[in-house]
Amino acid sequence: MSLKIGWIDYLNTLPFNFELTGVKADFDYQLIKGVPSQINQYLRKGSIDVGFVSSAEYIENFKDYYILPDLSISSLNKVHSVLVLSEKPVNQITEIALTTASKTSRYLTRIVFEKFLNKKVFYTDLKDINKIDTALLIGDEAIAYRDKYPYSIDLSGEWYRHTKLPFVFALWCVRKESFQRKKSEILKLSSVLKISKEKFFEDMEKYLKKSKIDFDTDFAKFYLKNLDFCLSSQHFESLQLFSNYLLEMGLIEEKPDFEVIK
């Protein structure tokens, strides 16, 4: 039975694209594609075995998942693709339309505004970017719209400014039941993803051209070099702090354990 892998085609997931980098996957697999919120849902329901999911998805459902080691999408300061964009300066913002594509970024918005900026705002779900003056956007959409608004708050930059820690946006996670049934394939995938990440950065320009991305190559190189794809003790410290804020704000019910496959 093939391994079902949840896959997100964003600029920031390119280093893990082992088909792009030519790293051989010595097992049967199927890529199930979607936006982050869809991949979260697929993993939760068991439609996929393993996937790149938001940190919030792991934190809320940690009893069902293991984490693959040494892999994440994180930022050591500004991330440039998780942005609150506005027609107004921050002191005049009263309402934010939140993308439904990422729960982690929605939670981070609340922490930044309510805890760091000490500001109460009203939140809605983003439906039409052209009909609102302040929105949370993520990923390729945030990059596309970032220059169209006079004011921009980089949420990862705010997190770093207040905590001096990287922010972990996404993790590679596997369902515990899938790990028991497909341990060999999961361990191989974990190795393939790590090798792909390393290979990608050895010749980034080559793989960016092969990928046919819609972004300027110079910007893509700057953007990807600014991200952090590792998962160290400092990253786990950040995840613990993020969880503490969510617990304190009543957004989660219990503090998670962070279990990494061996």
Rank of each mutant, 00 (worst) to 15 (best):
M1D: 10
M1C: 04
L3R: 09
I5F: 11
I5H: 07
L11F: 07
E19R: 02
G22P: 00
A25H: 05
A25Y: 06
Q30D: 10
V35F: 13
V35H: 11
R44S: 05
R44Q: 13
S47T: 10
V50N: 04
G51E: 15
F52V: 02
Y58R: 02
K63T: 14
L68Q: 00
P69V: 15
S75F: 06
L76P: 12
N77T: 07
V79E: 07
V79Q: 12
V84D: 00
L85Y: 10
Q92S: 14
T94P: 02
A97D: 15
L98N: 12
L98P: 07
S102W: 00
T104S: 15
L108A: 09
T109P: 15
T109H: 05
F116I: 06
K120S: 10
D125L: 02
D128K: 10
I129F: 01
I129L: 07
I138F: 07
G139Y: 07
I143Q: 08
I143A: 14
I143R: 14
S152A: 08
I153Y: 01
L155D: 09
L155V: 13
Y160D: 00
T163I: 09
K164A: 12
P166D: 05
V168H: 02
V174P: 15
K176A: 11
K176H: 10
K183N: 10
L189I: 03
L193T: 00
I195Y: 01
K197S: 13
K197M: 13
E198F: 03
D203H: 06
Y207P: 01
K209E: 12
K209G: 03
F215C: 01
D218G: 15
F222P: 02
F236S: 03
F236Q: 11
E237G: 01
E237M: 04
L247V: 12
G250F: 05
L251N: 07
I252W: 06
